[in-house]
């Protein structure tokens, strides 16, 4: 009798869970669906009714709008890839390195340095925004990818995440045995520690890549050369002025912008599915 009621209870709770999950999944898919449908619709169709679940027939003509504009998806992809890829790779690598320094070595400033990183984490981006932008102008780093890539080296949140992961995943014995084999510290980090960190790297890579790829304001101010525009800049140019906004083409541009993100995301998603184990310092 009791067993039966728990069985019923379980089925009910399981059903509730599925309903909630499916509802949330629909909420997640919806904007992408609407965006892709709008990419096939005409500007005036969209103005009349921005939200439609069905496609229309303007995909080709939306593509044609690009021809007359400074919209070159291939160039945009390339530039965005250099920036987002560069920032992600640098961010991941140096965050791992910093995290490793914090976990594997005993040095006097270790704890102060960790506190310092947590303090850096608290600095809001706007605080440095105005100064950063004027600084870059002064040293002539406009139309350069460097100011968009190099700051990723100091990513406090990522260092924290990596540190937590290393605390759980790094066995000091492996490091020590490599030392006995005569490996130097850089070799150990690159060849032994980095592979251990793969799952954490993948998760953070997604967050970092998405953030960098979608970044609009700083690139828009710093990159004024057409050949250097990123995808989001090109899409924002489609918006142009209020007199004639090509909404269909904008949605098409947005859809194109999201596609590479999808590829990166799904390629790395197996780590999200499997999950990453973070050491919680509660061993």
């Amino acid at each position: 009798m009791r067993r039966e009621s728990t069985l019923v209870g379980r089925t009910v709770s399981k059903t509730i869970k599925y309903i909630v999950c499916i509802f949330l999944a629909i909420l997640s898919i919806m904007p992408f669906w609407i965006m892709m449908m709008n990419a096939t619709r005409g500007t005036y169709e969209i103005q009349q009714n921005s939200i439609s679940l069905l496609p229309s027939t303007y995909l080709i003509s939306n593509f044609k709008v690009f021809e007359g504009k400074a919209f070159n998806p291939l160039v945009g992809f390339k530039n965005s890839l250099i920036i987002a890829g560069g920032a992600t790779v640098l961010g991941i690598y140096f965050s791992c390195l910093t995290a490793y320094a914090l976990v594997a070595y005993q040095w006097r400033l270790r704890q102060p340095f960790f506190t310092f990183i947590m303090a850096v984490l608290m600095i809001p981006a706007q605080v440095s925004g105005i100064g950063f932008y004027q600084f870059m102008y002064r040293i002539g780093w406009t139309n350069s990818y460097l100011p968009l890539i190099l700051p990723a080296i100091a990513a406090p949140a990522m260092v924290f995440f990596m540190r937590q992961y290393l605390l759980g995943a790094l066995s000091i014995d492996i490091v020590n045995s490599a030392r006995i084999d005569g490996a130097n510290e850089f070799y150990i980090f690159n060849r032994i520690v980095l592979p251990i960190m793969k799952p954490a790297m993948a998760t953070q890579a997604i967050f970092a890549f998405v953030g960098s790829w979608n970044n609009l304001f700083m690139p828009m101010i710093l990159l004024t050369d057409k050949a250097k525009y990123t995808m989001p800049i090109m899409v924002s140019l489609l918006r142009g002025d209020i007199y004639k906004t090509e909404y269909g083409a904008i949605y098409l541009g947005l859809t194109l912008t999201v596609l590479p993100l999808f590829i990166v995301y799904f390629a790395l998603s197996k780590y999200i599915i499997a999950g990453v184990a973070l050491g919680s310092m509660k061993e």
Partner: peptide, 27 residues
Amino acid sequence: YAKYGYIFSIPFVLAFLIFTAYPIFYT
């Protein structure tokens, strides 16, 4: 090995000083 703790932290500190600390100071 302790020195590697410092060495491996240098890139972070440098990038922080140049791209975050200086602009903040300016602000």
